[in-house]
Nucleic acid binder design. Structure first.
Lengths: 151, 151
DNA sequence: CACCGATCCTTAGTATACCTAAGCACCCTG
DNA sequence: CAGGGTGCTTAGGTATACTAAGGATCGGTG
């Protein structure tokens, strides 16, 4: 098997610390995920929001923006995309009319499920091919890194 | 393939997909890294390219775009940002004048080093606070995921 | 040698996603 | 009910990515 195949990728930094490795892996994966996105679909973030809403029920905009670690204004735009595509609705909170509750429409719920299944197929296949130990390492790493990202 | 098991209960879906966890962790980290970027700096990708060039020497545009898994046109733009900021130069390849070799300027090299150090400080600190086992898990996960991203 | 397809790069136009700044609407308290 | 704080939105700007289209150069073939 010894062809030249040991290709490095942009962002790979062998001699850098663990931080560099994490950073490069994240960048690579992010771009890869982005390119996996089928055409004519909602963006990455919008879909994440939809999935989140589907899973956790209606949320205010501020809550969503905090969950995703983006500014409220950014989240507002993402929600705009969802609502104008008919996948989410804004409802004024009856108890505090400054707030707006964002929830999925039936179409949105369906899309969330469908997309999620399709979206993770490739990735899950790759992951299932790994040893149980490696899978555990990845699960653990996700947990830890999610904490770090949220810190 | 069936994906029969994707029935969702509001709440946690940890065993519903390692893929989903990876995806969400990556998204969170990516945004976090992005927000760490000091203002008035080059973008993430541009900086990655600069670091890459600094480490591996001049490359053609196509090579760069393949390494980063982006279209050549996208890479051309990123390189534009670098060149117009004075951190990289384009040199026609003497052997094949269709090609253009991209290399760093001295300023670019310096920036690559400086940025790299500064950039990973926060992340390295977080990672150092983890147990050795956890650090190993993350290192392993990066390795595996990098392979998957490049596949 | 002249032509032609393939290759490399660039520019143009479009879309997503993020930010800050600014402003409106609403709530609560004094 | 006036003022200050909170929640959301819009406006304007940057970075990154894509596709489409065009210019330049190379290599092979008649």
């Amino acid at each position: 098997m010894g062809t030249e195949a040991n290709r490095e990728h942009l962002g790979t930094s062998d001699e850098a610390g663990l931080g560099g490795q994490v950073r490069s892996a994240v960048g690579l994966l992010y771009r890869r995920f982005r390119s996996e996105r089928p055409e004519g679909t909602l963006g990455d973030t919008a879909l994440d929001v939809l999935t989140w809403l589907h899973k956790h029920g209606p949320r205010t905009l501020t809550e969503l923006s905090e969950d995703a670690h983006v500014a409220p204004a950014s989240m507002s735009q993402s929600v705009n995309r969802l609502t104008s595509a008919g996948y989410a609705v804004r409802t004024p909170d009856p108890k505090d009319r400054r707030k707006v509750l964002i929830g999925t429409t039936p179409e949105g719920a369906e899309l969330a499920l469908a997309t999620r299944a399709r979206r993770n197929t490739w990735l899950d296949e790759q992951l299932h091919a790994l040893s149980p130990d490696d899978q555990r390492a990845i699960a653990r790493a996700c947990e830890l890194l999610r904490d770090i990202a949220g810190a």
